[in-house]
Amino acid sequence: MNKNTLLALGIVAAISFGSAGSALAAEAGPQPPRQKWTFSGPFGHYDKQQLQRGFKVYREVCQACHSLKLVAFRTLGQPGALGFSEGQIKALAAEYQINDGPNDSGEMFQRAGRPSDYFPPIFANEQAARATHNGALPVDLSVIAKARTYEVGFPGFLIDIVRQYQENGVDYLHALLTGYEEKAPAGETLTPNQFWNKYFPGHKISMRPPLEDKRVEYTDGSPQTVDQYARDVTAFLMWAAEPHLEARKRIGFQVMIFLIVFAGLAYFTKKKIWASAH
């Protein structure tokens, strides 16, 4: 086979990947703009300050409706997380009431949370959640940053492989949180419980605009704007979805260096061996 073969097979593989990865969210409106994230790229890492701010936004805004049930309090302090101390985590966990039991008399009871507990559900069940939100279900946010994406056309999806760009989910979340419009464009009608969002697939979203300037108080001097809130809470949700991202990228770099050196040695070994065959 010749060079064309390589090229062609490369394209087969690439197109197939891309079309699979990008086939979703095709019905969305404008493509969410790409943002700069500290955790993108081969040396990506979380900004602890940002995660803490994002967590504050989650606690003061999102948590009213959205649970985080796959995340345990203890993980807030693990390496590559928010950097909370053991004491901080204990105090934080104790602010939550956890359903436990049954006790010796056979009844369930509430107790203060411990680090080993998970963020408790906000509603008893899906029906209860829908009943209080006009039929809409506030989804759990534990893996939301990986559960959303948008379509990247040709050739962008191929470039993303090389650039290691996998922040489509967070781009979308940030765009959604900042993408509310005052009212629907002419010709579109909204029910009283619907809102117009540029980036939501179908545009009619049941979540009221959650953020407004100065809603959450920042103590580190970061701007108290919708854009900054959206950015921070999205970063926090990325951490919630991928708590081992830092370890993954760090180990990945070590593995890459190792494999490249190993490949070099294997290449020269092969060359030496074959030298005697000609």
Binding site: F17, A20, G21, L24, A25, P42, K146, A147, R148, T149, D160, I161, Q164, Y165, Q166, N168, G169, R248, K249, I251, G252, F253, V255, M256
Partner: peptide, 11 residues
């Protein structure tokens, strides 16, 4: 290590 979810579906 770098794009582990690229080949999967967000859904």
């Amino acid at each position: 290590f770098y794009i582990p979810n690229y080949l999967g579906h967000a859904d």
